[in-house]
Design a protein around this nucleic acid. Structure first.
Length: 886
RNA sequence: GCGGGCAUGGCGGAAUCGGUAGACGCAAGGGACUUAAAAUCCCUCGGCCUUGGCCAUCCGGGUUCGAGUCCCGGUGCCCGCACCA
């Protein structure tokens, strides 16, 4: 039999009698839910709404354990919220455009669409086997014409509102693949696929004007209370706001640069203006280009700088280099003071103005540069308690707060005061027809370039006409469909070489025109899918009423890798869709949760990495060793790493579901590790989860026979009361844990409840229990099933049925705990003497301070530690502790 | 370089507001049942002395009646951004 080890094991397990058999039960219940349309959500349902969403998958081929973890968490929340009385929207779709489909098309000579939809079919059935409570009636793929049609409408609306622009910008161009590469795809200056030397090309790109919203996107982060602080911080830093001054320096020799009179720089430290000793401009700065025309040496230097720009890694160690252009500028506060202008390799053209003034004493880069080219280093800020006469700058620039020195009218001020003083004065000075200084807020955030020279993406619905310029495709002519008859035998964009597709008539003048052949970045597709789910049938991007009702997404769950781009783009899109009337809110995701990765041990044999299925682990007296199952040879156990094909440390969810069932896989994903941290997948762990599944089944199915329905009468006591207290307390705690996504804690409480009721259940079976106890146990068992139902829904149905209930666990309300039973009437407090625990004291719940003190002092152990002395102080913290100080 | 996070038994982790450190699980060891195995059940399980203590939450200080939790200083790991003016 050629089955994986795990399956062979399970066959044996499942044949054992009286065991819960997920292979029969799981498909049965999945079918039952499906036929009852339990999870198809209606928009007109009057109950309060709850929208839970997991980041939709890219249809790469098969689901992996990361998906299992992500979708399990979302499903627990969806099922819990449904039980708690909410109208829950829990949809699923496919982020289906993208490069892998084109790569597959090239390799296998298939159409990207065919490959993609096949993958979707496979993955859909895999997800269905997990028993997720998804509304499949709202499913769509972003490559569906119905979806990208609406996306094109959005684009046209954005264009009309001025939210889309054209921008000529430098891109990484791979001359072999004939495509633009993202920075991440350039490795050591070469294309990641072709290996060709990447060129910098100026290309007209479509951009979304996300920078228009920079301030708003930044401000609103403060209100995203249910987002992880980490993500909020990352977004703040990415937007990167800084306050500074545009400073216009007068060029002393305008004749050298075609009469150009001013050099504009951006600075956040105008206070250090008297420490300035040089100007530095980027190699691509207009002045550098003008000067290069006359100076071959300078031109060569600029070329070198540009080449450097491509390899990001080189920047880390790159030396600060400059080239003196011979040009000089005048100091704004001193006509006679001129400063040299350098081209420098560390100045970026696309931040600020592409030019800086260097103040070596206050900036480490500037200091390095000044030392190298022997430029003056004048300290202008010193620590508050330093002596101005002796304060000097060595190898390190002084960047902290302090007091101004060597700065004429600024001396003695703080840098903050000096900033304002310089800004105010320069705003008053006119050079030509502009002020010499202008306060300006600068953002690090760039506009979002969305043009991709690819086939498998949403076509940009625009036509280029020689006479009319850029003409949007009229909405009546949408969608611009991707042509199916394309070839992938040559590099480059198949849309460019298609015989007919790109040739169209101009919608305005009717003359010959060209279709835009760029397609949209796939991040566009995922920037509004959450809104589309609220009314995917609508023949416009959204039904605003439905969108406004369902949004924001109450709980969004996904990987931290999307902390910046996807989430920021979605926040921008929501604003842009508000601007164009498609919905009416700014923030799409109320709650965000970023789950950890699934990691696994690695195994390395003489022939390289080995999969977990090929080995067997021996654990003797705490010493773990791994052996190949094939020939028994010992192999090395490597580190614990993220599951990846390259390290072969992957476990296929299909195998696990086939051998243990979906409930076991789901439960293991929720146990032990907190959801935000990485979880290590181990066979021992899965076995443990599976044992609990079987234990629950045994406990409940056997107990069901004995737990006749007995009405609990009031005033139960003894064991019955104890059991009731335990089950109600657990109910309260688990509800609280699930609200906070504390799945691992909820799981621990379920174990505690099971441990607590196991023995009494045994007594019922032996006929030893009274009616009160039987009733309490019956309730405890039903609570238990309700509590694990969101986690292990199939097992819950099976148990619910065996307990003799009609209806399904999936439609049963979350039980309500009895506040009286949760409240203690006696409490046991730890007693400390001088901060060390020495005894316990049990008092009535309502006991006064005095009563507690009296009861505590009456304890023998306490008296022993007092040794006859009077306590100096007795601290009673209600419901917490008693501490006696002697 | 800048910014942020984390550190608790053999392991994953609990400990809600500064109040009994180690819940719960895994692994391990011992036992019961069994012809045997699996499954199941019971016991032990931070360290050191022994029936009650002492030491223990990365290291060193501090605040406090009381610190895993707060403050200062250090060490180690992880993450994000990175020549951002």
């Amino acid at each position: 039999m050629d089955l994986p080890v795990s399956i062979r094991k399970s066959v044996y397990k499942i044949m054992a009698s009286e065991r819960y058999n997920p292979r029969v039960a799981e498909p049965k219940w999945q079918k039952a839910w499906d036929e009852a349309k339990l999870f198809e959500t209606q928009n007109d349902d009057p109950r309060p709404k709850y929208y839970v969403l997991e980041m939709f998958p890219y249809p790469s081929g098969r689901i992996h354990m990361g998906h299992v973890r992500n979708y399990t968490m979302g499903d627990v929340i969806a099922r819990y919220k449904r039980a708690a009385g909410f109208n829950v929207l829990h949809p699923m779709g496919w982020d289906a455009f993208g490069m892998p489909a084109e790569n597959a098309a090239m390799q296998n000579n298939t159409h990207p669409g065919k490959w993609t939809y096949q993958n979707i079919d496979t993955m859909r059935s895999q997800l269905k086997s997990m028993g997720l409570s998804l509304d499949w009636s709202r499913e769509f793929a972003t490559c569906d014409v119905e979806y990208y049609h609406r996306q094109q409408e959005l684009f046209v609306d954005f264009l009309e509102k001025g939210l889309v622009g054209r921008k000529v910008s430098k891109v990484n161009w791979d001359p072999v693949d004939q495509t633009v590469l993202a920075n991440e795809q350039v490795i050591d200056g070469r294309g990641w696929r072709s290996g060709a030397l990447v060129e910098q090309r100026e290309l007209a790109q479509w951009v979304f004007k996300i920078t228009d919203y920079a301030q708003d996107l930044l401000d609103s982060i403060d209100k995203l209370d249910d987002w992880p602080d980490k993500v909020r911080l990352m977004q703040r830093n990415w937007i990167g706001r800084s306050e500074g001054l545009l400073l216009r320096w007068e060029i002393a020799e305008p004749e050298k640069v075609d009469g150009e009179k001013l050099l504009e720089v951006y600075t956040t430290r105008p206070d250090t203006i008297f420490g300035a000793s040089f100007m530095a401009i980027a190699a691509d700065h207009p002045l550098a280009k003008k000067l290069s025309a006359e100076n071959a040496e300078l031109a060569a230097f600029c070329d070198e700088c540009r080449r450097m720009g491509t390899s990001l890694a080189a920047l880390e160690t790159a030396e600060k280099k400059g080239f003196d252009t011979g040009l000089t500028v005048r100091h704004p506060f001193d006509e006679s003071w001129t400063l040299p202008v350098y081209v420098a390799n560390f100045v970026l053209m696309d931040y600020g103005t592409g030019a800086i003034f260097g103040c070596p004493s206050g900036d480490q880069r500037d200091l390095d540069f000044a030392r190298k080219y022997d430029l003056p280093v004048v300290p202008v800020v010193m620590p508050k308690d330093a002596d101005a006469a002796t304060f000097e700058i060595g190898d390190e620039a002084y960047v902290d707060d302090g007091v101004m020195i060597n700065s004429r009218f600024l001396d003695g001020k703080t840098p903050k005061e000096a900033f304002d003083e310089v800004a105010s004065r320069l705003e008053e000075i006119q050079v030509g027809n502009v002020a010499q200084g202008e306060r300006k807020v600068q953002f690090r955030l760039r506009d979002w370039g969305i043009s991709r020279q690819r086939y498998w993406g949403c076509p940009i619905p625009v036509i280029h006409c020689d006479d009319c310029g850029i003409v949007p495709v009229p909405k009546a002519d949408l969608p611009v469909k991707l042509p199916d008859d394309v070839t992938f035998d040559k590099p480059g964009n198949p849309l460019d070489r298609h015989e007919t597709w790109r040739h169209v008539k101009c919608p305005k003048c009717g003359g010959d025109a060209r279709r835009e052949t760029d397609t949209m970045d796939t991040f566009v597709d995922s920037s509004w899918y959450f809104a589309r789910f609220t009314a995917p049938w609508e023949e416009r991007p959204t039904d605003p009423e439905a969108a406004n009702c369902w949004l924001p997404v109450d709980q969004y769950i996904g990987g931290i890798e999307h902390a910046i781009l996807h989430l920021l783009y979605s926040r921008f899109f929501t604003r842009a869709m508000k601007e164009t009337g498609h919905l009416d809110l700014k923030e799409p995701f109320k709650g965000l949760f970023t789950q950890g990765m699934v990691v696994h041990e690695t195994y390395k044999g003489p022939q390289g990495w080995v999969t977990p299925a090929e080995i067997r682990i021996e654990d003797k007296d705490g010493k773990r060793r791994a052996f190949l199952t094939e020939d028994g040879s010992e192999i090395e156990i490597g580190g614990i790493e993220k599951m990846s094909k390259s390290k072969k440390n992957v476990v296929d969810p299909d195998d696990i579901i086939a051998s243990y069932g979906a409930d076991t896989a789901r439960f293991f994903m929720l146990s032990d590790s907190p959801p935000e941290r990485d979880v290590e997948w181990t066979e021992a762990g899965v076995d443990g989860a599976h044992r609990f599944v079987q234990r629950l089944w045994r406990l409940i199915s056997q107990a069901a026979e004995n737990l006749s329905r007995v009405e609990a009468s009031a005033g139960s006591e003894g064991k019955a009361l104890e059991i009731s207290r335990m089950s109600h307390k657990t109910l309260k705690a688990v509800g609280g844990d699930l609200e906070k996504l504390g799945f691992n804690k909820a799981v621990a409480r379920l174990y505690e409840l099971v441990n607590a009721i196991a023995a009494p259940l045994g007594e019922v079976a032996e006929g030893k229990a009274d009616d009160q106890t039987t009733a309490a146990l019956r309730q405890a068992v039903e609570f238990l099933v309700c509590m694990f139902a969101p986690m292990m829904p199939h097992l819950a149905e099976e148990c619910w049925q065996v307990l003799g209930n009609t209806g399904m666990a999936a439609t049963t309300d979350w039980p309500k705990f009895d506040a009286d039973l949760v409240r203690e009437d006696e409490i046991t407090l730890p007693v400390q003497v001088n901060g060390k625990k020495r005894a316990d004291v049990t008092v009535a719940a309502g006991a006064s301070q005095e009563e507690i003190v009296a009861a505590t002092l009456a304890i023998d152990m306490v008296q022993k530690y007092l040794e006859g002395r009077e306590p100096r102080k007795v601290i009673v913290v209600p419901n917490r502790i008693v501490n006696i100080v002697v």
